[in-house]
Amino acid sequence: MHYIEVENLSFRYEDEPVLQNIDFTVDAGEFVILTGENGAAKSTLLRNILGLLKPSTGFAKISPVNVRNEKLAIGYIPQQVASYNAGFPSTVLELVQSGRYQRGKWFKRLDKEDDVHVKRALDSVGMWDQRNKKVGDLSGGQKQRISLARIFATDPDLFVLDEPTTGMDIESRTQFYELLKHNSEFHGKGILMVTHDHEDIKQYADRHIHLVRKEDSPWRCFSMDSCKEPSKPHY
């Protein structure tokens, strides 16, 4: 089942094309990494997929339902997460709990099951002991880890991650990749992740999509070079 479907997508900022002829899918249970040089419009592509930007031509769509025919939940981590709202008056625990709201809790109290998800998510990034700290008082790497904890608490069907390991040490990165791999392989989560770290992550990802500059274009315009490896269609 396709969680993400991108077909012949092109995008331009005013007159300048930045993405052309992008075609790919991300299935349930598939871990796909997206790479490209700096300025290769990787984040722009993610924002097109999420509906934050509108493609100039073609389309990008996200399945409205998951494999169980329930409303599909998306967990998104934007780029440079460490820089946003530094003064936000919230504890780590409150922020990670907010990841549960989209699980039908916008207008309901969080229950014991939510507490379990939140505790597990904070433990998975080693931040449970820091739960009462103010978000603004954390280091860049810690902020990155709690934003990961926040989406793990959501337990989304689809992860869309924009360079989520920025500021993390090798050990934390490896743990994170293993956690993602576990989520895709055993829980059927779809994962699309922008990264510069493709050598380290190769052994975990099912597919690697590389954005390359179009040689025939006068613009810094990027298209796809997909190195497709055998994917595991579990779902």
Binding site: G51, P78, Y101
Partner: peptide, 17 residues
Amino acid sequence: KPMYVLTFDEDTAFTAG
């Protein structure tokens, strides 16, 4: 709760529906 998420990050709020 919706305002908390909206205030924290609008893109996150949008993707949360």
